[in-house]
Design a protein around this nucleic acid. Structure first.
Lengths: 132, 132
DNA sequence: ATTGGTGCAAAGGTTTTGCAAAAGT
DNA sequence: ACTTTTGCAAAACCTTTGCACCAAT
């Protein structure tokens, strides 16, 4: 069971080429269409579901209600923060090992296993702070 | 601006009566209907939006794609973490000044002003970790 | 009287499903 | 040949919006 198809490869490639940054189903679909690859949106959704189920990729909600985001599970998402600006909506990826300290602290002092990938820290980015 | 209406009271009461547990917009709506209270789903959504905006309640994505969850914010939310267990859905309030260290670090090193109230750290609570 | 609140129906957006045709083995 | 995958159209969701009516001040 399990055939090899162009669509499957294309969808996985799209996620791989986005180097750790998340993409919505629609963004993946549009990217493939722009590359001239023939895919249906339904197929994108079906593969994202499968890839999420078998752990190849991760799915998380984008915070607002504009749809789910996906990204490769083995990308470097465990090594950086996700900062989301409440004003402009920008998602900022920040590589920093302070996150590990936070995770360690939560585990040691609060018995809580932090999911670094799903956690998003909300606040205000530099640009938006300057504007006020 | 701001009238007192039965619907407003009813929606807030529903959330208060479910202390600690989150509810979806639909669950709130159904609860009120079953209580014989006259409300429209639109009204529920509109109040949830307002209450979220003014900080009375908090909005969470439920992880899967079954819609957003809401729950009463507690007044001391600026002084503690909010840990949300992805498995059982429990919201854990943790008083700890490590959060201030985190906020300071984000500001100093990443020019990002953390909103402690809006930020929720996702992961797995002690009980759910033990079950696996 | 004036202003804000309500709720139906309709629209918006994302995700899922039914099914016949196409593609992989 | 046989089974899985595809993709269109349509449905199923959750949420927002337009608008006429109602309620609170």
């Amino acid at each position: 069971m399990g055939y090899n198809t162009k669509q499957q490869d294309a969808i996985l490639s799209a996620l791989k080429s986005s180097k750790g940054k998340h993409m919505t189903a629609d963004e993946i679909y549009l990217k493939l269409i722009r590359q001239g690859k023939q895919v249906g949106k339904t197929t994108v959704y079906r593969h994202l579901e499968k890839l999420t189920a078998d752990g190849t990729i991760r799915r998380y909600s984008s915070g607002d209600n504009s749809g789910a985001c996906y990204q490769l599970a083995d990308s470097h998402c465990n090594e950086h923060y996700h900062l989301k600006c409440s004003s402009c909506g920008k998602l900022i990826h920040v590589e920093c090992d302070f996150l590990d300290e936070l995770a360690r602290h939560l585990m040691n002092d609060h018995s809580f296993e932090l999911d670094k990938c799903k956690t998003v820290l909300y606040g205000k980015c530099e640009k938006c702070r300057e504007e006020k």
